[in-house]
Design a protein around this nucleic acid. Structure first.
Lengths: 207, 207
DNA sequence: ACCTGAACACCGTTCAAGT
DNA sequence: ACCTGAACACCGTTCAAGT
């Protein structure tokens, strides 16, 4: 009942599964071999070594981020929709995205989104260097936000917790502010609010 | 010519040196022991194990981020100055900051900055929940920007490079835009521009 | 209280040998 | 062309033993 010969694609699939579940640290050549029912060394024949196996997974992830369709009536709305799509896609593949990030391929992964942003910013009337600045500012903000957000989620047991950090004494004249800082942030809301605020300012006439 | 007895502080110093130079991956218990001229196992007596050694380094970094003094005449200027100080501090300790980030302690590290932001946002007239949102939006943007920026620097050999990604055909009606996208971004400028744009919008009356 | 070497269970990788 | 086991050089960690 032996498998037909092992395939590079099979190796990648099994590896992707391990990484999706428990992150790259959980991907061991020996564990992977056990999963596939082969000798460790066969894997080397198909993918070279661990590093290039991970590279191949990253490459696949970058390709998967291809298509995206903005929606909304105004350029500002459509830009927000692009940001939201990015957010959703990234949140579905946290480990793999982190690996893309580590390999410095974030930019290439975001090219489709970047092109959509260029289109919208142009439609909003921005031109030349100012349009390029706006696209980059939005792109940095979106990606940056997601990196921060992901970090927060990964470590739910902050010490000290936010509410310990913000006792009312910290903002003596505005207890409502202190209370608001002590409450956990709603990332979805904060994300939309931030992108909207930045976009409003960038698309403003003059500048 | 034997050393006087080994010290926890000595272990931390030597470890910090290794990490500052080549990142946490370069910190090996055996290498560290060699550096200190002791047996590997002595280190365990002083710091427990590798993980808690790294934790201790991170703790020290968090403490070092303590003081910061905003400057400038308007709240908006002072907020920008806080963001700039953060940027400078973080750029001086890239590896350690990444470790703080990995351990989910970014928030605690940023508490002093957060408090400064609360002060300025309050001075600008914002109150309650709206002030809290503004503080968080600025904080997320600043930290996020730095994470993205750091990632770019760490991997200068993007493939394909930005200028290959942006040939003039990509933005048919605005060659100036295409040229601007093909040029490398100036992070310092983009950072100031982004923070200013976001702050302007957040501090605006109404909202 | 502090340090030591030996040993254990894990890695990634190479290589000569098989079919 | 594909797979194998043995071996190598590295890890972090534990432990009984020293002083």
């Amino acid at each position: 009942m032996a498998r037909s010969t092992l395939t590079r694609a099979e190796v990648l699939d099994a590896a992707a599964l391990l990484v999706r579940q428990d992150g790259p640290g959980a991907l061991t050549m020996r564990k992977l071999a056990a999963e596939l029912g082969t000798a460790v060394t066969s894997i080397y024949w198909h993918v070279g070594n661990r590093e290039s196996l991970l590279d191949a997974l990253v490459e696949r992830t970058v390709e998967e981020m291809g298509a995206l369709a903005p929606s909304g009536r105004t350029p500002a709305d459509r830009i927000l929709s692009v940001a939201r799509i990015l957010r959703r896609e990234l949140r579905e593949r946290p480990h793999l995205i982190a690996m893309v990030h580590e390999r410095g391929l974030t930019e290439r992964m975001f090219l489709p989104a970047q092109q959509a942003l260029v289109h919208e910013v142009h439609a909003a009337g921005l031109r030349g260097a100012r349009a390029a600045d706006a696209v980059r500012a939005i792109q940095f903000q979106t990606i940056g936000f997601l990196l921060v957000e992901r970090n927060r989620e990964r470590s739910p047991a902050q010490s000290p917790a936010e509410n310990e950090l913000w006792d009312p004494a910290a903002a003596p004249h505005d207890p409502a502010l202190a209370r608001a800082m002590a409450r956990p942030a709603d990332p979805e809301r904060l994300f939309a609010l931030s992108v909207r605020a930045l976009v409003r300012s960038l698309l403003e006439p003059r500048g």
